[in-house]
Design a protein around this nucleic acid. Structure first.
Lengths: 145, 145
DNA sequence: GCTATATTTGCAACATAATTGCATTAACAT
DNA sequence: ATGTTAATGCAATTATGTTGCAAATATAGC
């Protein structure tokens, strides 16, 4: 693979954000995981590399630019995942299903699963759909049974 | 309609909960609204009739017994609605769609809308589905256009 | 490379939300 | 009426999120 850091730097520049150590580290962490990452976990891993406030602001900036998207888990905790291509400041395309494992509490973005269209009562105008499935992920399902 | 308070009292007893003023008032409030009720709103309406801590505990007890169900809105704020029949401590049947209005921020339980079955990757075991639609509710849709 | 400028960060203070322990109060079975 | 257990309120604590501002840092222009 091409130099990952270089790719992240381009991503930042493209979005008018400066290339700072904290931002790069957040991208590094998020990209290295197979599931969405909770804010508390990020906070912990960043440790003294970034102030708590900075993390909030980095995440907020990334979300606004469409670099990452936020998913709330069943406890209301914010989790973040890098957006697949096609997201921008103008428009998020994160209408895929999120899977929240009851056991390991990981949140998986099931990019391949599309949310089926929905019939709503007359008058209601649906803008966005947000579907979270809970249960056991493949890995925990294996371990437990 | 039969005496509402009497019905609530039965509901409490049936679930092994004592008939307290605070619990009855919470049921009263929730039942009198056409959409899910946010915790902050409940807190405000209860006023000095209940301590904030008591409210947390009442809601938690109700949720555990299957009397109400919790829906998180897009901001992660807890909202509560009385469960339709068929919910119990063992099993919630709140797998209908929730609609979060972007304008009035109400959360409607669209009991009539069923969540379509879902194809997930091999190994994943879905236990519950949680679908939140955002957009404009019928009432706001009218007013705005 | 050096400097000017605008952005970003960290700190401190503050605001809000949630949790815990414990003494007091209230419900209700007998 | 009374004893027992559950529920409440209060105080203290912890967690979570926000704001203003001074210091530090990235980078564009020289």
């Amino acid at each position: 693979m091409e130099n990952k850091t270089a790719r992240f730097e381009k991503l930042l520049v493209k979005n008018g954000l400066k290339r700072t150590a904290q931002r790069l580290q957040v991208l590094e962490i998020l990209s290295g995981r197979d599931s969405a990452t909770s804010q508390p976990y990020l906070e912990q891993v960043m440790g003294k590399n970034a102030d708590r406030v900075t993390l909030y602001r980095v995440l907020q900036a990334f979300e606004e630019k469409g670099i990452i998207h936020k998913v709330l888990d069943q406890q209301g905790t914010a989790n973040y995942a890098i957006c697949s291509d096609g997201c921008s400041a103008h428009e998020h395309h994160d209408e895929h299903v999120h899977f929240n494992c009851d056991n390991c509490h990981k949140i998986y973005c099931l990019d391949t699963v599309k949310i089926p269209a929905l019939k709503v009562p007359a008058g209601f105008k649906v803008e966005h759909l947000n579907l979270i499935a809970t249960g056991l992920c493949a890995s925990c399902s294996d371990k437990i049974n």
